[in-house]
Design a protein around this nucleic acid. Structure first.
Length: 140
DNA sequence: GCCAACGTTGGC
DNA sequence: GCCAACGTTGGC
């Protein structure tokens, strides 16, 4: 059973469409201890909801972890940060806006709502499934 | 080890 | 563009 996560990116920095074009990317630049620890808990095959912060404020797709955590080559010398490699899986047929997530009682425990500044958060299997459904994206 | 100051994030 | 929230840093 793969675990589920939600990762955030500002679309002006690295949108999901760019991940689609690239086919694969190194998820670098995470500089928060808790987010880093979440990255380190990821396994190949885990599924990540891709959330666009700031400009879109919507979940826009699903990505898959293709390489588990390794040292972030963009970290300053001596600093201990991690990255994973991701590939795009599916764009949402209907992006799910933050406002809809907030309006959905069943999602009230979602870490995105409770820890809005954390860039890598775990998602329960049930919440993941519901968000896929809200995004009208059936299979991964 | 506490806590004030600072920087960053991200919703509004 | 503003500002609240919060993680991090550094002086004491």
């Amino acid at each position: 059973m793969p675990a589920h996560w939600l990762i955030k990116s500002e679309p002006s920095v690295y949108p999901f469409s760019q991940l689609m074009q690239d086919g694969r990317t190194r998820w670098d630049g995470v500089r928060n201890f808790e987010a880093r620890n979440n990255l380190r808990a990821m396994k190949a095959g885990d599924l990540c909801l891709y959330y666009h912060s700031v400009e879109d404020k919507a979940v826009v797709g699903v990505a898959e972890v293709v390489r588990p955590a390794y040292h972030d080559p963009t970290a300053r010398k001596g600093e201990d940060w991690s990255v994973v490699d991701l590939k795009p899986l599916k764009p949402f047929a209907a992006p799910v806006p933050l406002a809809d997530i907030k309006a959905t009682r069943a999602l009230s425990k979602l870490a995105l709502l409770r820890r809005p500044r954390l860039s890598v958060t775990p998602v329960s299997a049930a919440d993941f499934k519901l968000l896929l459904k809200m995004g009208r994206t059936t299979s991964t």
